[in-house]
């Protein structure tokens, strides 16, 4: 019954044999031991399992691992590159988390969102995270965290990076 899936996870190629019914979230958590992606419901309601697949934010509890064959996925574990990602920084600075359980899903949701909409309004942010439930924060500081990240990413983009300067 096993099927081989090959995919890119946080930039690394992985290949595993899986049962077709294996949910992607279980594949990520159990087979790859990337436990930052969480499970909070059975009905595609809570978004704790949100990852990015080919750049889009999706709920990994409602995708079979076999569907991810050949695709590229990114999880919370892949976010920090040369230091924290601005979203991670924003959640820390603005107290955008309490128990931390919804946080990876929120960050991954916001990650895909900010790529499409780099300068969102508060209303647009609230809309973007409306498929991710948080029971602790009341969302106010999550919104602030995402705004922080948007500003930081904008500022970084506006400034030529050091490498570019060296090349020039």
């Amino acid at each position: 019954m096993g099927r081989t899936v090959k995919l890119t996870v946080n930039g690394q190629e992985v290949s595993r044999e899986v049962e077709p019914r294996l949910l992607l979230v279980h594949f990520i958590r159990e087979d790859l031991n990337l436990t930052g992606t969480h499970i909070g419901c059975d009905t595609t309601s809570c978004g704790a399992c949100t990852i990015n697949m080919d750049g889009k934010a999706v709920k990994s509890c409602t995708i079979f691992a076999v569907q991810a064959d050949g695709r590229s996925i990114e999880t919370i574990e892949g976010m920090a590159q040369n230091g924290l990602h601005p979203l991670q920084e924003g959640f820390w600075e603005k107290h955008g988390l309490q128990c931390g359980y919804c946080t990876p899903g929120m960050i991954m949701c916001a990650n895909a969102f900010l790529k499409e909409n780099p300068q969102p309004t508060e209303e647009e942010i609230r809309w973007a995270i409306s498929g991710n439930l948080c029971r602790c924060t009341g969302y106010v500081k999550i919104v602030e965290a995402i705004q922080y990240a948007a500003n930081k990413i904008q500022a970084q983009a506006a400034q030529p990076s050091e490498t570019k300067e060296v090349v020039a």
Binding site: T35, H38, I39, M79, L84, W92, G100, P104
Partner: peptide, 18 residues
């Protein structure tokens, strides 16, 4: 800023199902 946050924002929280 919370001392516990670095693990949570990097997916390194350690919950029972982990």
């Amino acid at each position: 800023k919370r001392k516990e946050d670095p693990r949570f924002i990097q997916g390194a929280g350690h919950y029972v199902d982990d």
